[in-house]
Design a protein around this nucleic acid. Structure first.
Length: 481
RNA sequence: GGCGGUAUCGUCUAGGGGACUAGGACACAGCCCUCUCAAGGCUGGAACACGGGUUCGAAUCCCGUUACCGCUACCA
């Protein structure tokens, strides 16, 4: 059995699209699972649209996801000489022919047919010239394109995800493989490169299904072994249309910056169009490799559901080792102006404790940063809503907070169970419920009605700052009353 | 228009002729837990596109219809 070789071949005309990322993922999983190679080829033959920036974005996106490639990146543009040679090989063997028809003329015919409502197909006969005519045009250096001579018959293959697909050859026109300026056309370049790279399975998007019969014909005419093909479905937006910019974020980089973890993205993408066959949903990369099979691949287009992605991210946020999370999130704290990475590192235990508190309450890493503001800074801004809800009676609340402050101040150890014992006892003495103490206290400490457990907040805000915040709240209420 | 592909809850899916009263997850609603919020647990509503076959028996196999998607370039 030959070593499996698969590739991901994006054109660098934009950022790494989530659909592309998923295609890359399936190829990558296949390579890992079946002990093969995962290669990357940049299809940059469309020089007008290709940019270095896009190429970089593709690398970055793939690297962020951890989908690393096994050999040096192949740039299609570097192989045009081989593409050219292969096209001429087909010309020489009679599998292709010269087409001297000016592009404008072909275009005119096409428009005419369309206007009549007919299906246009290039007419081989009009381009067929006698040897003498050809020699004459050649002598005059008239430009020509090379067209592939599509043979009679039916071209079919066993698609890894769709089973059998067949195209009657009469529905395939004699397509151009080399433009009149000598540059190769997509299908020629792809086949030439896939042969040269020794690709054994071409796994790509559904939108390439109609290219496949042309490519199979090319493999055969070139005398090359035809690889396996697998066409994975498209990813659609909520409206059922191909996912595009107007659906919002479509680049994997967008999701990175929105606060998603790469493992969530991978897990979510894997489940769009593939299923392990049972109810398992949350999986890490090793498990994905372990469970990956072609059998679980789907033929149906899937709609990208951001809500489920968010849930998935919440799951992975809860699972990721805390040190790893800290590493990802610390720079975000720095850009938010909360603390520098170095400061956080110097209070490692405390920082990890804070993250432990917040990770379960957040779905995005950005949310963790937002929620964490409570644990930084000297002053607290009180939400109007929080005041209205928990501090209605300024006099009574001020008194309770003062008592709370005093009781906490007497504590020997700044430790949750001791705090809870003390404050529950206080509530009992006053004949009120615990909530009557905890809720106003929460507003005093955080300015908000919601937060992690009040004793954890006290612990991580710290004794000094907590007492100061409560005192400040008492003062605020006094002035208010 | 031609060609190709697809069709299970709103969404992602399980399902490979009998185990289907069609299972799970997201979302939604309610309840429990509880100092609030999450997380978690429980409960609920919600689907086999339609029509024909094949078969003792069909969500599962076949055909047709419909709908949706893709391709239809000297773009990739």
């Amino acid at each position: 059995m030959k070593r499996p070789r698969v590739r991901f071949a994006p054109s660098p005309t934009g950022f790494l699209h989530v659909g592309g990322a998923r295609t890359a993922l399936f190829n990558w999983l296949y390579a890992k699972k079946f002990d093969g190679d995962f290669l990357l080829r940049i299809e940059d033959t469309d020089r007008a649209r290709s940019t270095d920036e896009s190429t970089r974005a593709i690398f970055e996106g793939l690297e962020w996801l951890g989908l690393t490639w096994d050999e040096e990146v192949v740039y299609q543009g570097a192989n045009v000489e081989r593409h050219y040679a292969d096209a001429h090989r087909l010309l020489d063997s009679g599998a292709a022919y010269r087409d001297f028809t000016p592009p404008a003329e072909t275009e005119r015919l096409r428009h005419e047919a369309e206007a009549r409502g007919d299906a246009y197909r290039f007419d081989r006969d009009t381009a067929t010239l006698s040897d003498a005519e050809t020699a004459e045009k050649l002598a005059r250096h008239e430009p020509y394109a090379i067209r592939f001579k599509v043979p009679d018959g039916v071209t079919e293959w066993h698609d890894v995800v769709h089973e059998r697909i067949a195209f009657p050859n009469r529905d395939i026109e004699d397509f151009i493989i080399l433009r009149s300026d000598g540059t190769p056309v997509y299908n020629m370049a792809v086949v030439s490169d896939d042969i040269a790279m020794g690709i054994t399975l071409v796994m790509r998007g559904d939108d390439h299904i109609s290219n496949t019969p042309k490519q199979i014909l090319l493999y055969r005419a070139l005398g090359a072994e035809v690889p396996q093909f697998g066409h994975v479905p498209m990813i659609h937006g909520a409206d059922g249309k191909k996912l595009s910019k107007r659906h919002g974020a479509t680049a994997v980089g967008d999701y990175q910056h929105l606060g998603f973890l790469p493992q969530s993205m991978l897990n979510f993408l894997a489940l769009l169009g593939w299923s392990p066959g049972d109810d398992t949903e949350v999986m890490q990369l090793p498990e994905l490799i372990e469970r990956f099979s072609m059998h679980g691949l789907h033929a149906k287009a899937a709609i990208f559901d951001t809500k489920k992605l968010e849930w998935m991210n919440g799951q992975h946020l809860a699972l990721i080792p805390i040190a790893e999370l800290a590493h990802i999130v610390a720079p975000l704290f720095e850009t938010a102006g909360l603390a520098t990475v170095a400061e956080l590192e110097s209070r490692r235990e405390w920082f990890h404790g804070v993250l432990e508190l917040l990770r379960v309450r957040a779905r995005l890493t950005d949310e963790i940063v937002q929620l964490a503001t409570t644990f930084f800074g000297e002053t607290v801004a009180y939400d109007a809503e929080a005041i209205g809800k928990q501090w209605r009676d300024a006099a009574v609340t001020g008194e309770i907070l003062q008592a709370t402050h005093d009781r906490l101040a007497t504590l020997e150890s700044w430790e949750p169970t001791a705090m809870e014992d003390a404050l529950r006892k206080l509530a009992e003495e006053k004949g009120i419920s615990g909530g009557k103490i905890f809720q106003p206290l929460r507003v005093a400490l955080t300015g908000k009605t919601v937060s992690p457990g009040i004793f954890e907040v006290l612990l991580y805000v710290g004794r000094e700052h907590s007492l100061a915040r409560v005192a400040a709240a008492v003062a605020f209420l006094k002035q208010d009353a």
